[in-house]
Design a protein around this nucleic acid. Structure first.
Lengths: 219, 219
DNA sequence: ATTTATTTTTAGATTTGCCTAAAAATATAT
DNA sequence: ATATATTTTTAGGCAAATCTAAAAATAAAT
């Protein structure tokens, strides 16, 4: 089945939005796609008719398995192309997103798989996000607590174990969020506090309790 | 300026059609694009309004310099991507056209130029057609192997790479000599053999080895 | 030089994805 | 619980690119 670029954008955006929430709302999707809510409703009807998501009016919506499958394949393409742009065409990791937004809509399945082989099956894109394989499987890298992470190795924040408001407040204040890339520069055995370095920012300190609850992956 | 994929297809098709003819006709373009003549007329009006071609109703049309510039840039993209697909992603030269039809519509100028650099500025695509540089200039007139020469384009034999007696015998037998004008009518991917047509003579077949050693220039 | 055939254009519809403005459903607050 | 605010949907339109069918212009043929 071939989907329009626009439909693919909807599927991808819904996929990302539904990670957290139990249902996605019209307004949230409208904000994510920079479109008007009325346009969202229009498209939802079409996607429902194509059996890509569950949707009942006024009740929110969610991709079904088929919709997820399509979304994951688009994400695969996006991330592979980003990897290609950075590692073969010398683009900076901060300038590839827009171009990959175009490339992800190419339809040839063989193209993607040959590209994957040419790149030697990379596990993550230049931002550290995992690249699903041709079956749509994410190879889960295990996430570890920042407390156990080695010194001077680039890590990417992948989650927060204790999601209290106080914790999130504190992390926000320290400029740490999901996806933030950082390195542990020093560990103080006295209180198990850590010094962290985030690109373009002054070194910061976090307590043992915070470090224990920040989950990271290799970058 | 950003043009729709459809407009780009029109410009490219007109560019190729006007190579021979003095003006291009509505019907010819309709056949080339597999569309109805009425659709052609509609689009011609739009392209004229955008000052990309000269067109007066019932009188045929032709790209102006601006239109040619756009068309050449699309051709550049098409041929660079074909080169990439064959030489980096291991596609066969006979299966890349369709994919390149999609890739040629990507809009990033930097992407094309970085790709060009990554490929080390190839002069011709896998079918032997010249790749214009980033200024839209064709670096023309080099002699190339008959094996790489495009289909249905008049070539003039300019040399023979391997001048063994056996080779020259064979060429003489097939009536091929320096200066002979011929066209490649067909390429067989199975063994890379070619069918050639020389004016006033029946079609002949040559092997990959022979074709590789016969050098030709545009005629 | 008319008639006939062909080519090209116009006129009006269709589809897709988007929009605005107004109505309907749901959520919030007093 | 009722009024108010927010969210979501409907209704109706617009622009792009296509189509069909009919009309107009040009070309070909007797």
């Amino acid at each position: 089945m071939k989907y329009s670029a626009s439909k693919e954008d909807y599927l991808k955006a819904i996929y990302h939005l539904q990670e957290g929430q139990s249902v996605v709302t019209t307004n949230a999707l409208a904000a994510a796609l920079q479109a008007k809510p009325a346009s969202i409703t229009d498209m939802l009807k079409k996607l429902k008719k194509e059996k890509l998501l569950n949707y009942e009016r006024y009740k929110g919506f969610r991709l079904n398995n088929e919709g997820k499958k399509v979304a994951v394949h688009i994400i695969r393409k996006h991330r592979l192309w980003e990897y290609f742009l950075v590692n073969k065409l010398q683009f900076g990791w901060d300038e590839v997103h827009e171009i990959a937004e175009e490339l992800e809509h190419l339809s040839s399945k063989k193209l993607v798989d040959q590209l994957d082989a040419f790149l030697e099956y990379p596990a993550t894109d230049p931002h550290g996000d995992p690249i699903p394989d041709s079956q749509g499987r994410f190879i889960q890298e295990r996430q570890v607590s920042l407390l156990d992470y080695p010194l001077n190795k680039m890590a990417k924040v992948s989650g927060v174990a204790s999601q209290t408001k106080e914790m999130l407040d504190l992390l926000q204040h320290k400029n740490i969020q999901i996806g933030t890339r950082l390195e542990v520069k020093r560990k103080f055995p006295f209180d198990n506090s850590l010094e962290l370095k985030i690109r373009n920012q002054p070194t910061i300190t976090v307590s043992e309790l915070v470090a224990k609850n920040v989950m990271v992956k290799d970058e």
